[in-house]
Computed example of a mutant assay.
Amino acid sequence: MSTKIRFLLRYIFVGALSLFPLILVIVVVNYLKNLGISAYLSLHDYTDSFELTLALMIGVIGVFAVLGFSIEKYGRSIFVSMIDSTFEKIPAIRSVYSVSKKLAAMLSGGEDGTKKEVVLVEYPKEGLWVPAYLLNRHENICVLFIPTSPNPTSGYTVLVDEALIKKTTLSLQEASSFIISMGADFSQKEDVSALIQTHRTSAQEL
C-alpha cells in the first residue's frame, strides 16, 4: 500500500509540474486583470462615467506607448527629464527616486544608452558559478548584482576584483530567463560551458 501511495504522489507531482507554465500564465493574466479592474474602478469613482473612464485609461496607455517609443528611438524623453529634474530638487525623496530610476534602467536592459553586462562569478564559494549583472566599476573593482532563482529582482550586491569574473555574451533577457526557469532555459550553453572549462584548465595549470 505504501508503494502505491508513493507512486500516486509522484504522479500528482509530475502532473502538477507539467501544468506549471499554464498555471503561471493564468496567475499573471489574473493579476493584470485585477490590476486593470482596480484602476478602472478607482477612475470611475472620480469620473462617474464609463466613457470618460475608458477614454482616460486609453489615454494613459497611449502616454506609456509614446514615452517608450521616444526613449527607445531617441534615448530620452522631455517629459521624463522634467520629472527627473523636479524630484532631484526634493531632498526627502531624491535618493529614493534616484535608486528606483537606476533599478528600472537595469531591468529594462540599459542606462544612458548602454546595456548592462552579464558575467559569471564564483559565488558563494570557489567552484560554484552564477550569472551576475555588472552594474558599476571603479578601476579593477566591479560592483555585481547576483540575482536569486526564480526571482531575479532579489539577490546580493557584491564587490569583486575584475580578474575574478568571466564576461559572457548573454543578454539581460537571456540571463533573467535562465534564472526564472531555474536553469531549464539555458541559452548559449556551449559558450558558458567553454568559459567555465577554460577557467578550470587554467586553474589546474597553475
Score class of each variant (00 low, 15 high):
residue 95 S to G: 02
residue 22 L to Q: 09
residue 194 A to P: 02
residue 7 F to V: 10
residue 201 T to D: 13
residue 100 S to Q: 15
residue 66 V to N: 02
residue 3 T to R: 04
residue 21 P to H: 02
residue 84 D to W: 15
residue 70 S to N: 13
residue 129 W to H: 13
residue 116 K to C: 04
residue 62 G to H: 02
residue 132 A to D: 04
residue 120 L to T: 01
residue 180 I to M: 07
residue 129 W to V: 10
residue 2 S to E: 11
residue 52 L to G: 05
residue 87 F to N: 06
residue 144 L to A: 03
residue 129 W to D: 06
residue 25 V to R: 05
residue 150 P to S: 08
residue 186 F to M: 11
residue 176 S to R: 12
residue 143 V to Y: 09
residue 32 L to N: 12
residue 44 H to G: 04
residue 40 Y to E: 03
residue 165 I to P: 01
residue 131 P to E: 07
residue 159 L to I: 07
residue 170 L to D: 00
residue 83 I to K: 06
residue 121 V to A: 01
residue 40 Y to A: 00
residue 104 A to K: 08
residue 192 V to A: 07
residue 186 F to W: 09
residue 195 L to D: 09
residue 141 I to L: 09
residue 112 D to Y: 10
residue 34 N to S: 06
residue 71 I to R: 04
residue 34 N to M: 04
residue 118 V to R: 10
residue 31 Y to D: 12
residue 15 G to R: 00
residue 5 I to H: 09
residue 10 R to I: 11
residue 93 I to C: 02
residue 155 G to L: 01
residue 55 A to Q: 14
residue 150 P to D: 03
residue 153 T to H: 05
residue 146 I to N: 14
residue 204 Q to C: 12
residue 97 Y to A: 10
residue 26 I to A: 08
residue 30 N to H: 10
residue 91 P to G: 13
residue 50 F to E: 06
residue 84 D to R: 12
residue 155 G to N: 04
residue 151 N to F: 10
residue 67 L to S: 11
residue 49 S to H: 02
residue 100 S to C: 14
residue 175 A to C: 07
residue 50 F to W: 09
residue 23 I to K: 01
residue 177 S to K: 03
residue 48 D to E: 14
residue 9 L to C: 13
residue 161 D to I: 02
residue 6 R to N: 13
residue 47 T to E: 05
residue 97 Y to W: 02
residue 190 E to F: 12
residue 135 L to C: 04
residue 182 M to N: 13
residue 66 V to C: 04
residue 133 Y to R: 12
residue 2 S to I: 15
residue 60 V to A: 12
residue 181 S to L: 07
residue 90 I to Y: 01
residue 2 S to K: 15
residue 39 A to S: 11
residue 122 E to A: 01
residue 132 A to L: 00
residue 204 Q to G: 12
residue 205 E to G: 13
residue 173 Q to W: 06
